[in-house]
Amino acid sequence: MNTKQTSKFSHSNASIMNRSTESLANPEELLVVKNLSVSFIQYAKGLKQLNLEVICDLNVSVNSGEIVAIVGSSGSGKSLLAHAILGILPTNAKVTGTIRYQGQALTTERQKVFRGREISLIPQSVNYLDPLMKVGEQVQNTIRTKDAKQLQQQVFERYHLSKEAGLLYPFQLSGGMARRVLVATAVSGGAKLIIADEPTPGLHPEVVAETLAHLKELANQGCGVMMITHDIEAAMKIADRIAVFYAGTTVEVAPIEDFKEGGEALRHPYTRALWMALPENDFKPIPGFQPTPTDLPPGCLFEPRCHLRTAECQCKKPEMQDLRGGQVRCIHAT
């Protein structure tokens, strides 16, 4: 990891730590992400440097035994959030804000130790497996104890994967098998926090149901699960809370009940619009596009598309505020 990121991290962590060591909130709180920003330095024409902010002021938390879904359209920076938590962003990324894991700042050093053990990733697709290595061997690679082989076989058994499946190469796996192998890889290290990055992309409904069941099972065993997805319906099936992502920030965090109820129960106009766009509701999208990181609006990020917008919205980014058991980033929310 690059040094710039390290120093930035520890510096900002220290300041937050001083403020909040006494007031450690919920002991069940496994992961707390506060005011996280991720930006990339890009070289534009000539020697001009561009600071491209892809995630800004992001807040989200995951408790043990809970599934939090992070829902947003593609290009909203969801995967980068996962990479930032794991500390595997590219070296030209700059990270500010705090990430706390089990009440302690998640520094670069701790990330290194925790990656693949305490915190693990369920990747999007079988492309995340080495194409030239047998899958059993790959799962063994992530286990760093001596009985790797035995453990791998146990985990495979748990996910109904035969001994022979371990001898297959990734390209030989069926869609359902591939999902199970990916989940097996993530849980084999005994992780307490599992980040599932788009676990159900374009899969057969049966496979989707199976994958979601696996995530639910992990949460029931006490793991915290962060499920990153653009599939609201999948999220609504298993999540306890849903965080809605828009243009690199969270605009609303709401308990699942509010999503099931829909409409007025939701807080942010974007969330409402998302909910309305679902096929079983109005199936109507709202006009406009999510802004790209190169031209973000100066005020509220959703302001250009919002029907509630006022002159005030254009001036200042709204802060995240608690509202009716959830959180919202909108000055007009009720």
Binding site: I88, R115, Y128, T142, T185
Partner: peptide, 14 residues
């Protein structure tokens, strides 16, 4: 730059 190297890093290899 491939996804599987990213995943291997996410699993603590380096």
């Amino acid at each position: 730059e491939s996804d599987y190297i990213l995943f291997a890093r996410a699993n603590g290899e380096s």
